[in-house]
Design a binder for these strands. Structure first.
Length: 314
DNA sequence: AAGATTTGACCGTC
DNA sequence: GACGGTCAAATCTT
């Protein structure tokens, strides 16, 4: 049995705002932490944890923005509808009559449907590890590339139907760096308990309150590069009147912008967040929707460049 | 033995 | 037709 995503555009907007507020807050704390490594900002989270929270906020925001009303998830949270590329083989079998006439079942290598509608984004880092279990299913020499490209899919593809995939390729100029392209979100439930997302949920819509099996959105671990959230984060935004606290902690101009934030135009928001002193810029880009999210508060030792690419979406 | 990786073949897109 | 993405048998690892 499948469950339709019930969110309206309005609630999606609230979700976007909430996630961006979270990301902004974590980025601000990270900024203070980096500027004042000893004193800190009253945050008990490490820089890495704050960075992970920022990444998570990006991911969720992107997810909300790019999700259509026809996105469908099963009761386990697995994505099974609309843009999903589930059951590629069955779909492909109906599509390629030509091949079925000329090949046997045993000789079906290469039969697939290229997932042009899947959400993709890229990340550049020194490691390919992202706390997810991947299974390599291919490697290919790429034209004009010194290093081959490796193809991975979620190790839970078959037992949970998770459609997340990634492609990893070393960068010629920096062989110690990896350019990772993520394709699709994790819809599997990882063995690690998904962290709970309770920070702003009581004052805004409660879509992300829990990331358990009842949730209709991918849980925290479903996002490809999210790490665990320190439970302490729950204490940072008490359930009572969270929105006001947020408002108080934000630059009034930013808050005003956020209130007027239009769905699908988050570039307005994050251009204000960007720092002139940034050594590393995180960017989320949607060429088709003029979406570009830049985050420039990270020093160079966070040698990770995150780039979201929605070329194939919408 | 089971799971993961390698690798050549196949197929869709450009 | 070239290139890139995927499949699946063979091989390797645990």
């Amino acid at each position: 049995m499948s469950i339709l995503f019930p969110e309206s555009v309005l609630s999606n907007r609230q979700r976007v705002i909430r996630e961006l507020l979270q990301g902004h807050d974590c980025a601000t704390k990270l900024k203070f932490l980096l500027q004042n490594p000893i004193g800190s900002y009253g945050s008990t989270l490490s820089a890495e944890e704050l960075l992970s929270n920022v990444e998570r906020s990006f991911t969720k925001t992107i997810y909300v923005v790019t999700s259509s009303d026809t996105e469908v998830f099963d009761e386990n949270g697995s994505h099974v509808g609309a843009n999903s590329c589930n059951d590629l083989r069955s779909e492909d079998s109906t599509k390629s009559k030509k091949r079925s006439l000329t090949t046997t079942i045993k000789d079906r290598r290469g039969s697939y449907k290229r997932r042009r509608t899947a959400q993709t984004w890229t990340k550049i880092s020194e490691t390919i590890d992202d706390n997810h279990a991947w299974r390599k299913y291919g490697q290919k020499e790429i034209l004009n590339s010194k290093f081959p490209r490796s193809y991975f899919r979620c190790s839970r593809k078959y037992d949970q139907g998770c459609q997340a995939m990634k492609q990893v390729q070393r960068i010629e100029e920096k062989p110690y760096m990896y350019h990772t392209t993520y394709i699709g979100f994790h819809t599997c439930k990882d063995t690690l308990e998904a962290p709970q997302m309770v920070t702003y949920s009581d004052t805004l819509d409660s879509f992300l309150v829990n990331s358990n099996s009842d949730s209709k959105v991918p849980n925290e671990k479903d996002t490809p590069f999210c790490s665990q959230i320190d439970p302490i984060i729950k204490q940072e935004y008490p359930k009572e009147d969270t929105s006001n606290d947020l408002k108080d902690n934000l630059d009034p101009t930013l808050w005003s912008d956020l209130k007027d934030l239009e769905l699908y135009k988050p570039a307005i928001l994050l251009s204000k967040v960007q720092s002139d002193n940034a050594d590393t810029v995180y960017s989320c880009t949607d060429d088709s929707q003029s979406l570009r999210l830049d985050f420039g508060v990270f020093p160079s030792h966070f040698s990770t460049d995150f780039h979201f690419d929605e070329n194939h979406l919408l």
